[in-house]
Write a protein that binds this DNA or RNA. Sequence first.
DNA 1: AAAAACTACAACCGCGCAGAT
DNA 2: TATCTGCGCGGTTGTAGTTTT
Length: 333
Amino acid sequence: MGRQPCCDKVGLKKGPWTAEEDKKLINFILTNGQCCWRALPKLAGLLRCGKSCRLRWTNYLRPDLKRGLLSEYEEKMVIDLHAQLGNRWSKIASHLPGRTDNEIKNHWNTHIKKKLKKMGIDPVTHKPLSNKTEETQAQPDEQTHQPLQEQQQQQQQHQHQQQPIPVEKDLKFEPEKEQNREPETSVESSTITEEVKEEDQIMTPLFDSWELMNEFCTDEAPIIEPNEILVPSAPSSTSPTTTTISSSTSTSSYSNSSNFLEDLLLPDLEWSDDYNDTNFDNNSSMALWDDDFIGSWNSLINGDGDRKQVFDAPINQYPRVIMDSDSWDYGLF
DNA sequence: AAAAACTACAACCGCGCAGAT
DNA sequence: TATCTGCGCGGTTGTAGTTTT
C-alpha cells in the first residue's frame, strides 16, 4: 500500500544549512548521484528531510547553477516570459539555464516588480499602469494573475477570431509571435522583446537558437552520475587544474576554511577521454564543470569576497552548461 | 554609535499531480 | 480502483545584511 512517508520529521534539523551539511550533501551526490530524496538524508548522514536536501541541492549546490544577479538580458527574458506564462516560475526558469525558479521568483519580487512599477508598468498585467489599476487592481490581480497571453487568448476567443492556442503552446518562447501581438495588449512586452531580439543576435553563441533554448529544461536534465562529471584537468593559465572546491559561503555562515572539498570524497575528476572527441568544436566546447565554472564554484564555496561579484560578468562569459539534447548522446553526461 | 527600517534571498510550507502499491 | 507517497511547484516566512534616521 503506497509508499513510506517522506520523513517522520522528528529530530530533523531546520533552518540554514551549515557547511558541514552541505559538504555531506555534495559529497553524497557526487559519489552516488541523485538517488531518491527520501532515502538520501539517512544515507548521507543528514538530519534533514529529503525535501530540504532536494531544495538545497537544486537551488544552491547544483553545479550547473549560475550565481549572482540576473543579467539585464536575463531580466528581460524573465519579464517577457512572465508576460506569457505568469507566475510559472519553474517554466520561466527552464528557459534560463543555470537559474532556478526560486532565484527568479525572488528576483522578480525584489527587483523586477519595483523596476516595472517605476517604469509605469503593471508587473501583473504587463500593461501601462493607470492610477486606478495601481491602486485598486494591483493586489487583487496578484491573486488571480493570468498571463498576458492567456488574457489575449480569452479576448481572441471572445472575438471568435481564431482558435485558442493550447496552453502548452505558451511554453514555447516565440519571438516572432511577439511581433504579431496587438500593440495595445503588450506595449511593454513587445518593446522588451525587440530588445531581447537584438540581444539575441549578440547572444547567439550562447543560445544557439531559440529553439534550442525552448528545448532545454533543467528539470529534464538527466541525473548526473559521478563518473559522468567532467572536469577539465588541462593546465590553464587562468585557473588551477585542481578540482578542489572549498568551504562554502552562504547565509549558513560558513567557516572560511578553504579545505571544504579537500575533505570531500570526490570521484576521480579528470578529463574524459571523450572530452576532446566530441562533436563540439573546441572553441565552444562545453562541459558541465569547465575551468571558469570550477573557479566560480571555488570562489563561491571559498567565500573569497562577494560571491555575487564572481558571476558579475556578461552572460556570454558565464560557464556554459550542456543544454542541447545532442550532448546527452555523446556521453558527456 | 545605536536603533529602526528596509532589502535580499535562502528555506520552509502546503498543495496538487503522477505514479507506485 | 483506491490509497498513499514522492516530487515539484508557487507562495510565504525568517533572518542576515545594509541603509537610514
